[in-house]
Write a protein that binds this DNA or RNA. Sequence first.
RNA 1: GCGGGCGUAGCUUAAUGGUAAAGCCCCAGCCUUCCAAGCUGGUUAUGUCGGUUCGAUUCCGAUCGCCCGCUCCA
Length: 491
Amino acid sequence: MAKLAKLDDIVSLCKRRGFIFQSSEIYGGLASCYDYGPLGAELKRNIRNAWWKHVVQMRDDVVGLDCSILMHPMVWKASGHADKFADLVTVCRKCGTRSRVDHLQDHEGSVEEHTEHIDIESAKSKAAELSRKVCPACGTIGQFGEPMAFRLMFETRMGANVEDTMTLFLRPETAQGIFVNFRNVLDSTRVKIPFGIAQIGKSFRNEVTTKAFIFRTREFEQAELEFFCKPGTDEEWFEHWKQERFNWYINLGIRKENLRFREHAKDELAHYAKACVDIEYKFPFGSGDWQELEGIANRTDFDLRQHQRGIRTMNEWYDKKGDLTKITLKEEAEDYLKGPLAYFDEETRERYIPYVIEPSAGIDRSMLAFLVDAYDEEEVRGEQRNLLRFHPALAPIKAGIFPLVKKDGMPEIAMNIYQDLKRYFPVFYDEKGAVGRRYRRQDEAGTPFCVTVDGQTKEDNTVTIRHRDSMEQVRVPLDQVKSYLRDKLGL
RNA sequence: GCGGGCGUAGCUUAAUGGUAAAGCCCCAGCCUUCCAAGCUGGUUAUGUCGGUUCGAUUCCGAUCGCCCGCUCCA
């Protein structure tokens, strides 16, 4: 069975074979940023496509969307991100333990529960009161260093005229783009609840720490589905998507023993969530090994209701000249059920704000999981064989096409096969060196099949097709190569 | 952000205050009829910046990056 890969082996293989490079490497690198090389770009796109196929293409009740990364600043005011964009962290002078200021408790024992980020101003005022706080590690009271603030959203400026620019945020999640387009999709597509809107795209978060290769980076790609359903049916849909998403990983080859659910306890739920479960993968790094690949949350009607409040706040936006720190979100309208983001059910004549089930997957960390899970080393005739046992749908290259040797007309026949097949899926032609070497190279790229033209080809019009995982070969008539591969590849 | 470890070629490893070496990989050619064969030739490295020095990959300082742990985070 497959060997447990060490992260170092994966990092090394990724660089050697062109899956993933350090960003800006010739300038010494940029922390937490990575570039996808030729094979990595293919693999990542295959993962995106597999997600899209599963979540959008194969479903009659989900449509796609592709929003801009830059959005109106009020989006983040309404979503809560703008007010909760700062963490304040302090260090205990006694034991060196770092704690979030808003997590510290008074020594009288008064408990202040904050699991969300708080705004910088109130965090700073809290920092002044640290004299009464208790270090959770050593119990020392009031021995804290100057708190440090962290800005969790990236900012940028829009407008070329420096005198007249607006501060914008790079989205910290793709979800909000879906909520703000809820009305547009309803009005343009004839979808009826229950239905979902899916999106894949980049998001940006100034994480306090990054971690473990591409696992946690500040720029990352999300695949998110917001599935809108009638209140009361949310728990079934939560279950539905939980299973669907778990099975997606399994069906793409992740071994079952490396995947699990982790339910969130009540006190760790985000402010918007009624329930949340993580799909975790057993990565070869980190303290607990098990790390989140995807979170599935019941976001209730929180977001749509917040945006209805946001819309009502627009006068203040103009009055305060767009200064988000001076703007207070307007209270919800009495008749918010009739608001612009409400849904009217024609059949039951009911009006409501739908509940939302959100499966939110990290594409980059999924890719790392697929890489780790596919990685294998085995001993063949005293030599080590490195290979990636990718599911055919994910393999960057579907087949290598080789002449056994570079003479006797074999290259010409092989080239013809290559020219034909490349119209249907990614294939790779190679005639250099010993055929065994070419096989091994494809093993390391995760190519599931190799087609070899040999001496017998000219006699009976057959070629050999060699399987990556078993190294077995079968003879297949030339005119059936395409259908054989398409069948095995599921294309 | 803290503590620890590490940074010599694509990879794995040498060596040295005075010409940076090798194996594998890679490229070209020859040869090769099924799993990293062989022969010939070739490309490529001391993370970056600065200091000391006649001379620094080596000593010193700073910086960048990666890994492990903590912290943090979904």
